[in-house]
Design a protein around this nucleic acid. Structure first.
Lengths: 185, 185
DNA sequence: CTTAAGTTTCAGAAATTTCTGAAAATTGTA
DNA sequence: TACAATTTTCAGAAATTTCTGAAACTTAAG
């Protein structure tokens, strides 16, 4: 388990960025290592390569499994658990996207829904309620859009992402064909 | 500065979620409060409403300014600085989206670009390089797509987000008109 | 220049998160 | 069943982040 300086830099960077992506340094490093390494690795190898404790590796693997980012393999005649990144880079990105949507959007939507059930007691509360409603509508729309993107076939997603400013033309085309000139959906 | 229990819950929740959105608890709370409160607030009022120190408020305001999420106002005959959330809820969401793209994507793109300049020295490095290239291509595409979305007019963005599964039909329509049946852009 | 109102800074305290390592639990094999 | 290999747990240590509050700084006005 010697890492090339390439791999080293890649792994360390994912450790640094980890916190911005929702996990801690060592979890980020473990994920990066499992992603660039061509073959499955066991806990011992991860601990050794990243110079962290065995216990920490165990907790990190648990978290990566909760994110559904890694999968377990077994080598014949070896009782150790071996892990690889789960699927292609695209699969991984999709999974991170979905997990983050869940963690960043859902709890807020759920709270706001709750708050909107209350009847406002005075003018001030009515105004606050209005703002809350605005935030709620926006987040709900975001959530639905994120869902739509998640469900797209790889090909379609790729096409969409490559459209660039072509998107505007396509949207115009659509309203011309289906919706008159001005009204929205 | 008495908060209704509505407002209270809203503010506290944004504090909790803050860390998932890239800022700390008190910054999240300050942002939430400036968002639901109908009029501009000064540092003293924020400190008092959130029960945090004056110094902490000052640092929080600095950070919210760095995110371009709040703006400064002055009341005639009052030397204090007053703040409000910058723009509509949609403006705010757009800004958060852009800032996060910058912070979460750009540093990684920049590092990977760097790594791809090196000539691989052996088979193992060549393989790693390939993986890095895959990650890079994906993130670059993501970045461009995020850029496209950022630049869309509010109306167009809304239309796009409301399309739902209509997106697939639109993409089909497009290939039928411009690109034969299978080829991508 | 002086003063008072207001803001920012920053060293250290407090809170929170992450990490270690030894002990406990689990698992496969004989 | 016993046992050895492996994984998991978790209490406390270490590291990191956040927060406080007093001092330093800035600014407007007399």
């Amino acid at each position: 388990m010697k890492l090339s300086s390439q791999a080293q830099a890649f792994v360390l960077h994912f450790g640094e960025m980890g916190s911005r992506w929702g996990f801690n340094r060592t979890v980020g490093q473990m994920f990066a290592l499992l992603t660039i390494h061509p073959s499955p690795l066991n806990a011992e190898q991860l601990a050794q390569a990243l110079k962290i404790s065995r216990g920490n590796v165990s907790m990190g693997l648990k978290e990566l499994q909760a994110w559904r980012l890694i999968e377990l393999h077994h080598q014949p005649g070896d009782r150790k658990d071996y892990f690889t990144a789960a699927g292609s880079i695209w699969d991984l990105a999709r999974t991170v996207f979905e997990e983050r949507r869940k963690r960043e959007l859902d709890p807020t939507l759920s709270l706001l829904r709750q708050l909107l059930l209350n009847e406002p007691q005075d003018e001030q509360e009515a105004q606050a309620q209005e703002k809350i409603q605005e935030v709620y509508s926006l987040l709900e729309l975001l959530e639905e859009f994120a869902n739509t993107l998640s469900k797209l076939e790889h090909d379609d997603l790729l096409k969409l992402m490559k459209l660039g400013s072509g998107i505007v033309k396509l949207l115009e085309l659509k309203s011309r064909l289906t919706g008159g000139t001005s009204s929205s959906d």
